[in-house]
Design a protein around this nucleic acid. Structure first.
Lengths: 214, 214
DNA sequence: ATAATAACAGAACAGGTGTTCAGTGTCAAG
DNA sequence: CTTGACACTGAACACCTGTTCTGTTATTAT
């Protein structure tokens, strides 16, 4: 992960690589990129490719012709890449990413598009510990969330409790001046909070649990 | 399309190309194919590649390095289609499909290959009811299972209990003549059964929970 | 057996391709 | 002004890669 924003050229290059890959199913060469982006020198293309790799947008296989892989997507229109931005603990607020595209996480999880839709505001968190057990979410589960400030009644949301200083995943209900937080596990009882004490950080859209990670 | 069947070598080659493409997202060179398939001469690889193109299995871009495209109308190589064979109730045995390809389910769920691997023995079930709550699996969850008769210690398995005549999802442990079935929820206690009373129907490899099905 | 065809081996060639290096200009900080 | 970082140029090098050629071996038909 590296700071800095893409230059015009780098943006042009990565869009060309993406288009080329879509047309031909194999990545372009350095000279093909240069030709398409009006770059006369192969070393400049090489230079900017290294920058793009520093940003985490591509992966280069050194000394391999056409050894460019786009890391934001396995280049499948049916797969949605979701940045895995960190881990979630009950004792800390959810590390919600600020801007959608300004940063480049080092890890992605790919999911079929029909599972999560097309939203750009998705991010994934790996759960640490059993503190979310009342939401039927266990240690090692991956929760896919949609960044949003407000929740609608019934949403399973990540909620920061100001007084307790912890994050909880519960179903959100705003009812006559108070907030009811209902555990997903129906055998457990809800808790009630004052609206000014709760802070919605995002809405859970999917939970994935891999039993045997190879 | 041309008549004739593929030789052993050609079959080996095309599977290698497919695997290579899956791993690297770019096609292999002629020499990489030859190395993987124990072919000493590049001309032989070239020879057989032309045959594969005659058969319509691949498309070659002449004079382009790694210019091999697999004309695979199939799904994306990064998505695995998993048949959704039915619903799971605690009161009934899991409807395990008999033969992998002998039946045609009307519904599929697609998952990224890196989530579930390549096994052909996968099938998916939608959970009805809250009977699996002690496995942290709720109503509407989709469990992806791998068909198998035996379970190893620690596997989260679908287990049919002969006497109670019901299915349960628990972690399986065979220990000194008895079977311990441990709920995934660590706050709940295990149950113990005689080995002849339990029947493994499959092993859970993944659980997916969609919160808001659009 | 003989001939024809398919499949393969090895080598060589021309051009493609990633890499590297010595410079050039720009621009902001010291 | 000087310095240094940054983006870029042009050229050269070494290896990679697809192609082609000649020749050999195996298989099949006549």
């Amino acid at each position: 992960m590296v700071k800095g924003k893409m230059s015009k050229r780098q943006q042009q290059m990565i869009t060309f690589i993406r288009d080329f890959l879509g047309d031909n199913n194999y990545p372009p060469t350095i000279r093909e990129i240069g030709r398409a982006c009006q770059i006369s020198s192969t070393s400049v293309v090489n230079y900017n490719l290294n920058k793009l790799e520093d940003y985490g947008l591509i992966h280069r296989n050194l000394r391999v012709s056409r050894g460019i892989q786009i890391s934001d997507t396995q280049h499948s229109p049916n797969l949605v890449p979701i940045p895995l931005v960190g881990r979630i603990f009950a004792s800390k607020p959810v590390p919600v990413p600020d801007a959608p595209s300004s940063f480049a996480p080092d890890e992605y999880i790919s999911l079929a598009r029909d599972l999560v839709g097309d939203s750009a505001d998705l991010f994934a968190l790996e759960v640490s510990g059993d503190s979310m057990i009342d939401a039927m979410i266990g240690d090692g589960d991956v929760v896919v969330m949609k960044r949003q400030i407000e929740a609608r009644n019934g949403d399973l949301a990540a909620i920061w409790l100001n007084d307790r200083e912890e994050t909880t995943l519960k179903h959100f209900f705003l009812e006559k001046g108070r907030v009811r937080l209902q555990p997903a596990n129906p055998t457990m009882h809800p808790i009630y909070e004052k609206p000014e004490n709760v802070q919605v950080q995002g809405k859970v859209v999917l939970v994935v649990r891999q039993i045997n990670k190879a």
